[in-house]
Write a protein that binds this DNA or RNA. Structure first.
Ligand SMILES: [Mn+2]
Ligand SMILES: [Mn+2]
Ligand SMILES: [Zn+2]
Ligand SMILES: [Zn+2]
Lengths: 133, 133
DNA sequence: CTCCTAATCAGGAATTATTCTTATTCGAGG
DNA sequence: CCTCGAATAAGAATAATTCCTGATTAGGAG
Protein backbone atom coordinates (compact mmCIF):
# COMPACT_ATOMS: atom_id res chain seq x y z
CA UNK A 1 0.00 0.00 0.00
CA UNK A 2 2.01 2.93 -1.28
CA UNK A 3 1.33 6.27 0.37
CA UNK A 4 -0.57 8.75 -1.66
CA UNK A 5 1.74 11.01 -3.56
CA UNK A 6 1.47 14.71 -2.91
CA UNK A 7 2.75 17.19 -5.45
CA UNK A 8 3.87 20.59 -4.29
CA UNK A 9 1.80 22.98 -6.30
CA UNK A 10 2.10 26.73 -6.27
CA UNK A 11 -1.28 26.92 -4.50
CA UNK A 12 -0.27 24.50 -1.76
CA UNK A 13 3.05 26.26 -1.28
CA UNK A 14 1.49 29.67 -0.81
CA UNK A 15 -1.25 28.38 1.48
CA UNK A 16 1.45 26.78 3.63
CA UNK A 17 3.57 29.94 3.70
CA UNK A 18 0.52 31.97 4.65
CA UNK A 19 -0.47 29.77 7.58
CA UNK A 20 3.11 29.52 8.81
CA UNK A 21 3.48 33.28 8.57
CA UNK A 22 0.58 34.04 10.91
CA UNK A 23 0.24 33.77 14.66
CA UNK A 24 -3.47 34.49 14.59
CA UNK A 25 -5.04 31.04 14.21
CA UNK A 26 -6.92 32.00 11.07
CA UNK A 27 -10.10 30.49 9.71
CA UNK A 28 -10.20 28.99 6.22
CA UNK A 29 -11.82 32.06 4.74
CA UNK A 30 -9.27 34.38 6.32
CA UNK A 31 -6.54 32.30 4.72
CA UNK A 32 -8.48 32.42 1.46
CA UNK A 33 -8.55 36.22 1.64
CA UNK A 34 -4.80 36.45 2.11
CA UNK A 35 -3.78 33.81 -0.42
CA UNK A 36 -6.03 35.46 -2.95
CA UNK A 37 -3.79 38.52 -2.99
CA UNK A 38 -1.01 36.42 -4.45
CA UNK A 39 -3.19 33.99 -6.40
CA UNK A 40 -6.31 35.88 -7.47
CA UNK A 41 -7.77 32.86 -9.27
CA UNK A 42 -7.55 30.41 -6.35
CA UNK A 43 -10.82 28.91 -5.16
CA UNK A 44 -12.05 28.42 -1.60
CA UNK A 45 -12.38 24.70 -2.22
CA UNK A 46 -8.68 24.51 -3.00
CA UNK A 47 -7.88 26.25 0.26
CA UNK A 48 -10.00 23.81 2.26
CA UNK A 49 -8.58 20.79 0.48
CA UNK A 50 -4.98 21.85 0.99
CA UNK A 51 -5.50 22.81 4.60
CA UNK A 52 -6.79 19.30 5.20
CA UNK A 53 -3.91 17.69 3.32
CA UNK A 54 -1.32 19.76 5.19
CA UNK A 55 -3.04 18.84 8.45
CA UNK A 56 -2.95 15.14 7.61
CA UNK A 57 0.76 15.48 6.91
CA UNK A 58 1.27 17.11 10.30
CA UNK A 59 2.76 20.26 8.76
CA UNK A 60 0.04 22.46 10.20
CA UNK A 61 -2.63 21.89 12.84
CA UNK A 62 -6.40 22.07 12.63
CA UNK A 63 -7.75 23.18 15.98
CA UNK A 64 -10.80 21.36 17.20
CA UNK A 65 -12.17 24.19 19.25
CA UNK A 66 -15.82 24.59 19.93
CA UNK A 67 -17.58 26.93 17.58
CA UNK A 68 -18.81 26.99 14.06
CA UNK A 69 -15.67 27.84 12.14
CA UNK A 70 -12.56 25.71 12.24
CA UNK A 71 -9.21 27.45 12.85
CA UNK A 72 -5.72 26.54 11.71
CA UNK A 73 -2.32 26.87 13.35
CA UNK A 74 1.09 26.92 11.67
CA UNK A 75 2.73 26.09 14.98
CA UNK A 76 2.64 22.34 15.50
CA UNK A 77 4.73 22.35 18.66
CA UNK A 78 2.75 21.19 21.70
CA UNK A 79 0.83 24.03 23.28
CA UNK A 80 -2.66 24.95 24.43
CA UNK A 81 -5.01 27.76 23.57
CA UNK A 82 -7.19 30.26 25.34
CA UNK A 83 -10.17 31.80 23.62
CA UNK A 84 -11.70 35.17 24.44
CA UNK A 85 -15.36 34.68 25.27
CA UNK A 86 -16.16 38.20 24.10
CA UNK A 87 -14.40 38.54 20.76
CA UNK A 88 -13.30 34.98 19.95
CA UNK A 89 -9.59 35.82 19.68
CA UNK A 90 -7.28 32.88 20.34
CA UNK A 91 -3.91 33.07 22.07
CA UNK A 92 -1.19 30.51 22.69
CA UNK A 93 -0.33 29.02 26.05
CA UNK A 94 3.10 27.47 26.32
CA UNK A 95 2.87 26.07 29.80
CA UNK A 96 1.75 22.78 31.20
CA UNK A 97 -1.80 22.13 32.25
CA UNK A 98 -2.89 19.41 34.65
CA UNK A 99 -1.87 16.15 33.06
CA UNK A 100 -4.53 13.57 32.48
CA UNK A 101 -4.36 11.07 35.28
CA UNK A 102 -4.91 7.36 34.90
CA UNK A 103 -7.64 7.87 37.45
CA UNK A 104 -9.70 9.47 34.72
CA UNK A 105 -9.46 6.45 32.51
CA UNK A 106 -10.48 4.18 35.34
CA UNK A 107 -13.75 5.97 35.70
CA UNK A 108 -14.91 5.24 32.18
CA UNK A 109 -15.29 2.18 30.03
CA UNK A 110 -13.91 4.14 27.08
CA UNK A 111 -10.37 3.53 25.87
CA UNK A 112 -8.91 7.02 26.18
CA UNK A 113 -6.86 8.26 23.25
CA UNK A 114 -6.31 11.94 23.90
CA UNK A 115 -7.32 14.95 25.90
CA UNK A 116 -8.48 18.26 24.56
CA UNK A 117 -8.20 21.26 26.81
CA UNK A 118 -9.56 24.66 25.91
CA UNK A 119 -9.34 27.61 28.22
CA UNK A 120 -11.81 30.44 28.14
CA UNK A 121 -11.02 33.96 29.25
CA UNK A 122 -11.06 37.62 28.37
CA UNK A 123 -8.40 39.16 26.18
CA UNK A 124 -6.55 42.34 27.18
CA UNK A 125 -8.47 44.46 24.74
CA UNK A 126 -11.88 43.22 25.91
CA UNK A 127 -10.83 43.68 29.57
CA UNK A 128 -10.57 47.44 29.02
CA UNK A 129 -14.25 47.83 28.37
CA UNK A 130 -17.26 46.61 26.49
CA UNK A 131 -16.36 46.27 22.86
CA UNK A 132 -17.68 49.29 21.03
CA UNK A 133 -19.04 47.31 18.16
CA UNK B 1 -35.33 47.09 32.33
CA UNK B 2 -37.78 44.29 33.00
CA UNK B 3 -36.58 40.81 32.20
CA UNK B 4 -38.13 39.10 29.26
CA UNK B 5 -41.08 37.00 30.31
CA UNK B 6 -40.99 33.33 29.51
CA UNK B 7 -44.23 31.41 29.14
CA UNK B 8 -44.32 27.68 29.68
CA UNK B 9 -45.82 26.38 26.50
CA UNK B 10 -46.71 22.79 25.81
CA UNK B 11 -43.85 22.66 23.29
CA UNK B 12 -41.29 23.97 25.75
CA UNK B 13 -42.53 21.62 28.47
CA UNK B 14 -42.22 18.53 26.31
CA UNK B 15 -38.82 19.53 24.94
CA UNK B 16 -37.62 19.96 28.52
CA UNK B 17 -39.05 16.62 29.63
CA UNK B 18 -37.41 14.94 26.66
CA UNK B 19 -33.95 16.34 27.31
CA UNK B 20 -34.19 15.64 31.04
CA UNK B 21 -35.32 12.10 30.31
CA UNK B 22 -32.26 11.17 28.26
CA UNK B 23 -28.70 10.41 29.25
CA UNK B 24 -27.49 10.36 25.68
CA UNK B 25 -26.53 14.00 25.04
CA UNK B 26 -28.81 14.30 22.03
CA UNK B 27 -28.48 16.65 19.10
CA UNK B 28 -31.24 19.10 18.23
CA UNK B 29 -32.57 16.91 15.46
CA UNK B 30 -32.62 13.83 17.70
CA UNK B 31 -34.70 15.80 20.19
CA UNK B 32 -36.87 16.95 17.30
CA UNK B 33 -37.48 13.34 16.30
CA UNK B 34 -38.57 12.35 19.80
CA UNK B 35 -40.67 15.40 20.57
CA UNK B 36 -42.41 14.96 17.26
CA UNK B 37 -43.96 11.70 18.49
CA UNK B 38 -45.92 13.65 21.05
CA UNK B 39 -46.32 16.88 19.06
CA UNK B 40 -46.45 15.92 15.39
CA UNK B 41 -46.84 19.51 14.24
CA UNK B 42 -43.81 20.96 16.06
CA UNK B 43 -41.14 22.55 13.89
CA UNK B 44 -37.38 22.19 14.09
CA UNK B 45 -37.04 25.94 14.57
CA UNK B 46 -39.15 25.73 17.71
CA UNK B 47 -36.89 23.00 19.07
CA UNK B 48 -33.76 25.08 18.46
CA UNK B 49 -35.31 28.22 19.95
CA UNK B 50 -36.47 26.46 23.10
CA UNK B 51 -33.22 24.60 23.60
CA UNK B 52 -31.45 27.96 23.55
CA UNK B 53 -33.94 29.54 25.94
CA UNK B 54 -33.69 26.61 28.37
CA UNK B 55 -29.91 26.83 28.16
CA UNK B 56 -29.96 30.57 28.92
CA UNK B 57 -32.09 29.81 31.96
CA UNK B 58 -29.58 27.21 33.11
CA UNK B 59 -32.17 24.43 33.13
CA UNK B 60 -30.28 22.40 30.56
CA UNK B 61 -26.77 22.61 29.15
CA UNK B 62 -25.52 23.14 25.62
CA UNK B 63 -22.22 21.33 25.22
CA UNK B 64 -19.50 23.18 23.41
CA UNK B 65 -17.76 20.15 22.06
CA UNK B 66 -15.76 20.22 18.89
CA UNK B 67 -17.68 19.05 15.89
CA UNK B 68 -20.40 20.20 13.61
CA UNK B 69 -23.53 19.39 15.58
CA UNK B 70 -24.24 20.85 19.00
CA UNK B 71 -25.36 18.46 21.75
CA UNK B 72 -27.55 19.06 24.78
CA UNK B 73 -27.45 17.72 28.31
CA UNK B 74 -30.27 17.59 30.84
CA UNK B 75 -27.73 17.15 33.63
CA UNK B 76 -26.47 20.57 34.67
CA UNK B 77 -24.34 19.32 37.55
CA UNK B 78 -20.61 19.85 36.98
CA UNK B 79 -19.08 17.02 35.00
CA UNK B 80 -16.98 16.34 31.93
CA UNK B 81 -17.41 14.24 28.82
CA UNK B 82 -15.64 11.65 26.74
CA UNK B 83 -16.50 11.25 23.08
CA UNK B 84 -16.06 8.15 20.94
CA UNK B 85 -14.01 9.02 17.88
CA UNK B 86 -15.64 6.21 15.89
CA UNK B 87 -19.36 6.59 16.55
CA UNK B 88 -19.59 9.98 18.29
CA UNK B 89 -21.23 8.62 21.43
CA UNK B 90 -20.72 10.78 24.51
CA UNK B 91 -20.37 9.54 28.07
CA UNK B 92 -20.25 11.36 31.39
CA UNK B 93 -17.20 11.69 33.62
CA UNK B 94 -17.76 12.83 37.18
CA UNK B 95 -14.31 13.72 38.47
CA UNK B 96 -12.83 16.93 39.81
CA UNK B 97 -10.27 19.09 38.08
CA UNK B 98 -8.08 21.66 39.79
CA UNK B 99 -9.31 25.24 39.66
CA UNK B 100 -7.61 27.60 37.21
CA UNK B 101 -4.50 28.76 39.04
CA UNK B 102 -3.32 32.34 39.23
CA UNK B 103 -0.04 31.06 37.86
CA UNK B 104 -1.77 30.53 34.54
CA UNK B 105 -2.99 34.09 34.35
CA UNK B 106 0.53 35.34 34.98
CA UNK B 107 1.75 33.61 31.87
CA UNK B 108 -0.86 35.11 29.60
CA UNK B 109 -2.39 38.50 29.20
CA UNK B 110 -5.82 36.87 29.20
CA UNK B 111 -7.96 36.80 32.31
CA UNK B 112 -8.68 33.09 32.65
CA UNK B 113 -12.27 32.24 33.52
CA UNK B 114 -12.62 28.52 33.10
CA UNK B 115 -11.44 25.57 31.14
CA UNK B 116 -13.12 22.79 29.31
CA UNK B 117 -11.76 19.32 28.99
CA UNK B 118 -12.99 16.88 26.41
CA UNK B 119 -11.60 13.41 26.29
CA UNK B 120 -11.52 11.42 23.11
CA UNK B 121 -11.55 7.65 23.06
CA UNK B 122 -13.25 4.53 21.84
CA UNK B 123 -16.47 3.31 23.40
CA UNK B 124 -16.88 -0.30 24.58
CA UNK B 125 -19.05 -1.18 21.63
CA UNK B 126 -16.62 0.18 19.05
CA UNK B 127 -13.70 -1.55 20.81
CA UNK B 128 -15.21 -4.92 19.97
CA UNK B 129 -14.76 -4.45 16.27
CA UNK B 130 -15.24 -2.16 13.34
CA UNK B 131 -18.79 -0.86 13.35
CA UNK B 132 -20.81 -2.91 10.92
CA UNK B 133 -22.43 0.09 9.35
C1' DC C 1 -64.72 34.16 33.11
C1' DT C 2 -63.25 37.33 29.23
C1' DC C 3 -59.82 40.40 27.19
C1' DC C 4 -55.53 41.74 25.78
C1' DT C 5 -51.06 41.41 24.09
C1' DA C 6 -46.30 40.06 24.22
C1' DA C 7 -44.46 35.70 23.69
C1' DT C 8 -44.50 31.90 20.87
C1' DC C 9 -45.65 29.03 17.11
C1' DA C 10 -45.40 26.57 12.19
C1' DG C 11 -43.64 26.77 7.92
C1' DG C 12 -40.38 27.90 5.03
C1' DA C 13 -36.66 30.90 3.27
C1' DA C 14 -32.01 32.40 4.23
C1' DT C 15 -27.38 31.98 5.95
C1' DT C 16 -22.99 29.85 6.79
C1' DA C 17 -19.38 26.58 6.75
C1' DT C 18 -17.85 22.89 4.39
C1' DT C 19 -17.76 19.15 1.01
C1' DC C 20 -18.52 17.30 -3.46
C1' DT C 21 -18.62 17.08 -8.70
C1' DT C 22 -16.74 17.72 -13.17
C1' DA C 23 -14.17 19.10 -16.87
C1' DT C 24 -9.55 20.86 -17.42
C1' DT C 25 -4.66 21.62 -16.17
C1' DC C 26 -0.23 20.46 -14.28
C1' DG C 27 3.99 18.52 -11.64
C1' DA C 28 7.46 15.53 -11.88
C1' DG C 29 9.36 10.90 -12.82
C1' DG C 30 10.92 8.18 -16.77
C1' DC D 1 9.19 15.62 -24.25
C1' DC D 2 5.38 12.11 -22.55
C1' DT D 3 2.36 10.30 -19.50
C1' DC D 4 -0.82 10.03 -15.90
C1' DG D 5 -2.53 10.51 -11.46
C1' DA D 6 -2.87 14.45 -8.53
C1' DA D 7 -4.65 18.98 -8.32
C1' DT D 8 -7.30 22.93 -9.87
C1' DA D 9 -11.39 26.46 -10.69
C1' DA D 10 -16.03 27.01 -10.63
C1' DG D 11 -19.98 26.23 -8.86
C1' DA D 12 -23.56 22.92 -7.12
C1' DA D 13 -24.81 20.34 -3.07
C1' DT D 14 -25.17 19.40 1.83
C1' DA D 15 -26.00 20.21 6.57
C1' DA D 16 -26.67 22.76 10.73
C1' DT D 17 -28.60 26.63 12.36
C1' DT D 18 -30.88 31.09 12.28
C1' DC D 19 -34.18 34.31 10.57
C1' DC D 20 -38.76 35.99 8.81
C1' DT D 21 -43.82 36.29 8.67
C1' DG D 22 -48.36 35.93 9.67
C1' DA D 23 -51.26 33.18 12.84
C1' DT D 24 -51.90 31.38 17.60
C1' DT D 25 -51.80 31.30 22.66
C1' DA D 26 -50.40 31.61 27.73
C1' DG D 27 -51.45 33.84 31.49
C1' DG D 28 -52.01 38.30 34.01
C1' DA D 29 -55.45 42.20 34.44
C1' DG D 30 -59.99 43.47 35.08
MN1 LIG E 1 -1.37 28.08 18.57
MN1 LIG F 1 -23.35 14.88 30.51
ZN1 LIG G 1 -11.53 39.74 23.29
ZN1 LIG H 1 -18.25 4.17 19.60
Amino acid sequence: MAEKQHRMTRQRQIILETVKGLKTHPTADEIFGLVRKRLPRISLGTVYRNLDILTEQGIIRKLDTAGQQKRFDGDVSPHYHVKCVKCGKIDDLYFELPQPSSEWSEKTSFQILEYNVELLGICPQCQKGPSHH
